[in-house]
């Protein structure tokens, strides 16, 4: 019965709320562009230049400012989400790939793959506040809901590094499976999910127990080679009940029960699914599919893939703003 109710709610959302002005921004790594989708119709409404090799993409808490890691420009490009006007760039350190914005909207924590550091940048003064030495090839960045902890994953060191956001010092390190790509806290902060691309697992770390691993989620899809199951992007629903895991070249998104850590379903999306983002109302999940140049749209209530929308070349990251 719940399911029916949820489905009704979801389909209502598709047709109602014309006042919803939300937008979805997609960074296209190869196309050097940003595609903008309308949050209601899911149509492409605009495309603009995103700098050289745009990858990581995020927005300010008020949704007004868009930040993009322009990896080959070695800076963070900043745009107005309403006018698409480019604002002054932020320094990023070399080869920025992913970053995370403090929940307060400042500062920005940037992973610099080539330098084994995390750069902390004040988004207002555009000053570098700190450079934190981490492991080899820093990549994934996550922040705790209370903003006290930033997590960086280093791909060749195979660790999650927990950083105090006041002192900018590492206070804990946890070894995870090979090539950790992404870190995401549960909304209540009680669990930290770390995806391992080559290891093929998601480690669930316990912040209350010095970030020790309390569970490892594994994946298996009949007919898909185990090597192709490569977890990358991960998002947890606002109610904390479900986690979605992008499985890269397996072309699937896994749906995980965030309490039992059981994999409930595998949703077939586009090719080389990379990063994920929820719509502002949490009803839809957007996936970037790097090799098929599209974005798949998943209905969260039913776990159905509704449609796919063609975007630019090699979509990498995605963020939705209200």
């Amino acid at each position: 019965m719940n399911r029916v109710f949820a489905a009704l709610m979801a389909s209502a959302a598709l047709f109602a709320t014309p006042a919803d002005a939300s937008k979805i921004f997609v960074s296209n790594e190869k196309g050097n562009t940003i595609t903008v989708l309308d949050g209601t119709s899911f149509e492409v409404i605009h495309t603009f230049n995103g700098g050289q090799r745009p990858r990581g993409i995020t927005a300010s808490p008020d949704g007004k400012t868009l930040y993009i890691c322009a990896s080959d420009d070695n800076l963070v490009r900043v745009f107005d989400t309403e006018t698409y006007e480019e604002l002054p760039s932020l320094p990023s350190g070399p080869d920025p790939e992913l970053f995370v914005l403090h929940p307060s909207g400042n500062p920005l924590f940037i992973a610099n793959e080539d330098d084994n550091i995390v750069t902390v940048v004040d988004v207002h003064t555009r000053q570098v506040l700190a450079e934190i030495p981490v492991g080899v090839e820093p990549e994934g960045m996550g922040v705790s809901p209370d903003g006290k902890v930033v997590v960086n994953t280093s791909e060749t060191t195979n660790m999650a590094h927990m950083i105090d956001t006041e002192t900018f010092e590492i206070f804990a390190n946890t070894l995870v499976d090979s090539r950790p790509r992404f870190a995401q806290f549960s909304p209540d902060g009680a669990a930290l999910f770390v995806t391992s691309e080559i290891g093929g697992t998601v480690s669930v770390l316990d912040p209350a127990d010095n970030y020790e691993i309390k569970h490892k989620i594994e994946f298996a899809v009949p007919g898909v080679l185990p090597e192709a199951l490569q977890p990358v992007g991960l998002r947890v629903t606002e109610d904390g009940k479900k986690a979605y895991v992008a499985l890269g070249p397996a072309n699937r998104v896994a749906v995980v029960d965030a309490a039992s850590y059981e994999v409930k379903d595998y949703l077939l999306v586009g090719q080389r699914v990379w990063q994920l983002a929820f719509s502002p109302d949490g009803k839809h999940l957007f996936t970037t599919n790097g090799n098929s140049n599209d974005v798949s749209i998943i209905e969260v209530a039913t776990d159905k893939v509704l449609k796919s929308v063609q975007v630019g070349e090699q979509p990498w990251g995605v963020v939705a703003v209200p």
Binding site: P133, M159, E169, I170, F171, A172, N173, T174, L175, N210, Y211, E212
Partner: peptide, 9 residues
């Protein structure tokens, strides 16, 4: 390593 603290475990 002394400054940053060793890995957990």
């Amino acid at each position: 390593a002394a400054v940053l603290g060793a890995a957990s475990g």
